[in-house]
Amino acid sequence: MNYSHEAEAWNCTSCGAGLVVTKVFFTYMKGNFEVDLPACPECGLVLVPEDLVRGKMVEAERILEDK
């Protein structure tokens, strides 16, 4: 999924910068993941959109829990 649209819609309030899509790392139950997501290039604050959370992420969590 491409989140460049979301990246354009949000600003980081502490840095004032716009977001750019970059690699974001996640970990859960001994599993490591990376996803291209919008983040602040200055401070690294990330944006994990709701549709990703409720879709792919929940799915991945479930699979890891049955491991």
């Binding site: 970059t22 974001v24 790392f25 996640f26 991945a60 969590e61």
Partner: peptide, 15 residues
């Protein structure tokens, strides 16, 4: 306006 949650932990971005 909205809230959601996940258990996957955000480690950070590529620096």
């Amino acid at each position: 306006h909205n809230a959601y949650c996940h258990r996957m932990k955000i480690v950070g971005t590529k620096r």
